[in-house]
Design a protein around this nucleic acid. Structure first.
Lengths: 203, 203
DNA sequence: ATAATAAGCGGACCGCAGTCCGTTTAGAAT
DNA sequence: ATTCTAAACGGACTGCGGTCCGCTTATTAT
């Protein structure tokens, strides 16, 4: 399902999960989606979730590891879809277009993603620089930007430059611009376009 | 003392703090510095601080408002010094040099700042997008970058562009590169130089 | 000196994320 | 069907940041 397996599911040799575990997982995911829908991401507590799903608290943490892990799980379908699009999808986001256009499209797609899932994404990164910067999806985005920079001929430490560009697209930061400062998404997109266009000029 | 008054001190008409309050503030700051020195920022808890300073927990929070507030207070001298340097100090960091050189110097200074105070700065921004992005010093850095961009002739939404550049210099992010990935500070500086140089080319 | 008062104080208390460990149970082996 | 065992479970417990509120005390006015 996800291109990068975010949670438990099924590495290879491992036997399938027990039936009660599967049932509880479904109950938990359903309850989590309901709670997020009716109260907002930030108001959902792990106790609340355990209670609503009618399981013990230990079960919640066994399943998701942490609050951030729960949020990642809730995001994983959207995340997988996003990954599919920029890896296999049609240009300009997917392969086929020149790198500058792909970069621009990548930024625009991220902005839309943050508009829709920003709160979840923020909660999925909270309380751990490790999760924030080295979670598999983040590393993948980073590598993708780095690859596009290389393709565009930017050979001076593209890894760090990709980190800088990634910082611009950070969910918390963009969310803050959008919500706290009322910046229009189109303006964010225009600024991103301007930024990468200038960066890649004459390479 | 600080150019931007970070904590309580003395707005104008307010009478000076009571003597016992002053004494407790000194005790708290001394205890906080000691604890940070001997156990590291992340290991210092508010209870621990209250206990070491021999005051009640309520007093700690009355003084600093939150853990982040405490860390900001511990940073305020270094922060004021940094502000002085890029506002009034000698070029290329201070006024007098061309904007590109000032930008480069600003990034370099921030990198040194993070090397020295990164953990404190990270802790000062934790648990609140509000504090992270709209704290007075952050706003000041942002304005400074924006001003330099304008001076350099970059007139397409310099406010948002400054936000992007600021994101690159974010303490948590740089700290993560430095510590978790072992990136040398000189490499960070070189990447920053490359980034802003390309951005300001042909303006 | 005494009284009045507001700032300051302390620590019990709360909510939340995350852990621990004794108990239950699904599913395999016989 | 019975036994076995490892996975799963549940909820009491811990640690931390942060709040609340009744008590204390420095300071000012009389």
């Amino acid at each position: 399902m996800s291109l990068i397996p975010i949670r438990p599911g099924s590495p290879f040799g491992t036997q399938p999960e027990r039936s009660d575990a599967a049932r509880n997982r479904e109950r938990l995911l359903q309850a989590a989606r309901d709670l997020v829908a009716e109260r907002g991401v930030d108001a959902v507590t792990m106790d609340m979730l355990a209670c609503r799903a009618d399981v013990g608290k230990g079960t919640v943490f066994r399943r998701f590891g942490s609050r951030a892990g729960l949020m990642m799980t809730l995001l994983s379908d959207a995340e997988a879809e996003f990954q599919r699009e920029f890896i296999f999808g049609p240009p300009p986001l997917g392969p086929g277009a020149p790198p500058l256009e792909r970069l621009i499209a990548f930024g625009e797609a991220r902005i839309k993603y943050v508009e829709e899932y920003g709160e979840l994404a923020r909660a999925a990164a909270e309380h751990s620089p490790q999760n924030r910067h080295d979670a598999p999806p983040v590393v993948l985005w980073h590598r993708h930007i780095e690859m596009l920079l290389r393709e565009a001929g930017l050979d001076r430490d593209p890894w760090l430059l990709a980190l800088s560009l990634g910082a611009t697209l950070d969910p918390e930061r963009m969310l803050h611009s959008l919500r706290a400062h009322g910046v229009a998404p189109e303006r964010l997109a225009a600024s991103w376009r301007e930024l990468v266009t200038r960066l890649l000029k004459d390479c």
